[in-house]
Design a protein around this nucleic acid. Structure first.
Length: 274
DNA sequence: CTCTGCCGCGAAACCTAC
DNA sequence: GTAGGTTTCGCGGCAGAG
């Protein structure tokens, strides 16, 4: 069940399947958004009325601050984009009165204001070194969001932002704490947790890229390599969009490896049978 | 070369505990 | 009320694909 359904009921009598029943580490790896297909066509009102519910914020976990049980908290992206039907949960929970004012995410940054920055945004004055940076920046001013969340309808300028957002609906938490096994949707959340709770300092320089983690957005499986993820998806989710998006070159390469691997196993089996 | 996806950073908004 | 931890997302920088 997508976390989006995990709305804290005001009345304790109502029992709702809670992800609290699963530890984070298990949830992250085992959760399969079975309702996803249905959601695509029939998004629950809760979803629209309370993105927060998805947030998992809570979801995080049982007994933890911001756990799923508290997910009704009016938090989350949907709050920022009130839509028809907002706040109209089936039982009236999270009524409009509980919805806070749209959360402002407006960030006043200075852009790249170096001498080398020669491409300036006419709308906000930010300057960029490269034209393509300015081109992309201009999308920020556009009211048209190209990437829409199929769960709640919220729009994003960036596919990755959408992908990241969708995790709040699917409950997929790829980043796990080695110490307490709590799971997080984003790496920075995990690193913040490690630093504050366990006093673990990251060994990375400022802005240094971490080891990439390959995440299956269908089930939360994580692998250390793209090949690893490809093999997983190929076996577990043959119809996954991931396979369609994988570049032909890489797909062919991985498919060859997969085939040869299977052949090797087959030969091995034959030899064992003899 | 351009487009697009991915990344990390930073900050607002939120929660729980005290 | 306040402090501390967590969740979420806007956005600039970077890198790979085409």
């Amino acid at each position: 069940m997508p976390k989006v359904f995990l709305v804290k009921r005001r009345s304790p009598g109502v029992s709702v399947r809670s992800w609290d029943e699963l530890p984070d580490e298990e949830r992250a790896d085992t959760y399969i958004p079975v309702g996803l297909g249905r959601l695509l066509h029939d998004p629950p009102e809760d979803c629209r009325s309370d993105g927060g519910s998805s947030t998992g914020g809570g979801s995080s976990s049982a007994g933890e601050p911001g756990g799923a049980e508290s997910s009704s908290s009016p938090r989350g992206p949907e709050r920022e984009t009130p839509e028809p039907g907002d706040g109209e949960g089936p039982d009236g929970h999270l009524a409009a009165k509980q919805r806070p004012v749209a959360r402002s995410k407006i960030k006043f940054t200075t852009g790249t204001c170096s001498d080398a920055a020669v491409h300036t945004c006419d709308l906000c004055g930010k300057a960029f070194r490269l034209q393509r940076m300015l081109n992309r920046h201009l999308k920020c001013h556009s009211q048209v969001k190209r990437h829409l969340c199929s769960f709640c309808g919220k729009g994003f300028n960036d596919t990755f932002d959408l992908k990241r957002h969708v995790r709040t609906h699917t409950g997929i938490r790829p980043y796990k704490c080695d110490v307490c096994h709590k799971a997080f949707t984003q790496r920075c959340s995990l690193e913040s947790h490690l630093k504050k709770i366990h006093g673990v300092q990251q060994q990375y320089a400022y802005k240094q890229r971490r080891d990439k983690l390959y995440v299956c957005e269908d089930c939360g499986y994580t692998g250390p390599t793209q090949e690893d993820l490809y093999l997983h998806v190929n076996g577990a989710h043959p119809g996954s969009a991931f396979l369609k998006k994988t570049s032909k070159k890489l797909a062919a390469l991985l498919q060859n490896k997969l085939t040869s691997s299977l052949q090797g196993n087959a030969n091995l089996s034959e030899e064992e049978e003899k």
